[in-house]
Design a protein around this nucleic acid. Structure first.
Lengths: 200, 200
DNA sequence: CCTACCGATCGGTAGG
DNA sequence: CCTACCGATCGGTAGG
């Protein structure tokens, strides 16, 4: 249990440092200093710097996936949800994961490219599959006439990068609460995709 | 002239490397290798690695500013432009600068934080002033009843981070041309901010 | 633009 | 979790 707490503290410290200075801008001694141990002592708890990054990125990827899965679980195949409601739910889920742990979300968004080999490839695949949820709901909405989006791929990229942009400005103690941001971002995203109710 | 070409080649190579691996993930020897000289020889052309970053970031900041200034110059005080037209022009200008030089735009968006001291502060100020152009046009549009945006600050952040997100997916030889992306992104941004023509 | 070199720091290991 | 240490690489300088 003590061991686990230490490991958790190391990942917390690494998340904050990777968020602030990037993976390659952070040394293992920076991380060690943040948890008050010697640089070399870090290796009693982790096998490598890459391993710490992987742990942060993988767990955060899983959180995004779980949040989106919960929507699908609530209404399989979107049997009763309209596409607008579905898109709103996806946006809210994403914003929630970001605001719940801004540092880890930031590392997931910006530092996954520092992953090496098959781990990097795995995350690239999972990110694409996740983005595809946005593409699909938008494309479905366009087909149903509820959405206007000319290009679902570009629209999904627009929306998702806007949501991810939160990691560069959200402050937990800022003027706008996580709740207000979720409301606002859901509204903006729906509005961007939606067809006008009464075309001019 | 030969000297100038070399310096330009160094900044081109540095832009590509900073874009791909980040500032701290790129060594001066990486840059030197890309222009086929020895690491130490780089210092015949630049005074420091920081200096190269500064040069790239400052010039790119100036390009974003000039593109936005050109809109204001075309219609001072937006005397004849509607706010929607003005926002669309800002979005198109921004997208144009990004797609015109994706690598430098990427360095500007992601690596300006690696700047040190007063240079970092200067860019932080200029970025804020630039973002303020978006906040202002949106706030003006809300006052005039043309826009719906509940919070102009959050809306400006949403739109601008979506535009900046282009640096992580735009490919000059991709399926979507710079022109199509500019059209699509202008449409999405206006739609996100706009009041419905006929409220339901 | 090169060779030769600087002190500092890098991620990580050995051995306790 | 520590001290002591490893080879490699870092940004940069000297002197031509």
């Amino acid at each position: 249990m003590v061991e686990k707490t230490r490991r958790q503290a190391i990942e917390d410290a690494a998340s904050a440092l990777f968020h602030a200075h990037g993976y390659s801008g952070t040394s293992v001694r920076d991380i060690a200093r943040a948890v008050d141990i010697q640089g070399a002592s870090l290796y009693a708890h982790v096998t490598s710097k890459q391993d710490v990054l992987w742990s942060i990125v993988e767990r955060t990827a899983a959180r995004f996936e779980a949040a989106a899965d919960a929507i699908e679980a609530a209404d399989p195949g979107a049997a009763t949800f309209g596409r607008g409601v579905y898109l709103i739910a996806l946006v809210r889920a994403h914003v929630g994961v970001v605001t719940d742990d801004i540092e880890r979300a930031s590392v997931f968004v910006h530092e996954w490219r520092a992953l090496e080999g098959h781990r990097r490839e795995e995350i690239a695949r999972r990110r694409d599959a996740y983005e595809d949820r946005f593409r699909t709901v938008i494309a479905d909405g366009v087909r149903a006439g509820a959405f206007h989006a000319v290009d679902p791929v570009a629209t999904a990229a627009y929306v998702l990068t806007a949501l991810n942009g939160l990691v560069s400005w959200y402050k937990p103690d800022g003027r706008l609460s996580a709740r207000v941001i979720a409301d606002t971002y859901a509204d903006l995203s729906l509005r961007a995709a939606q067809a006008p109710r009464m075309p001019a």
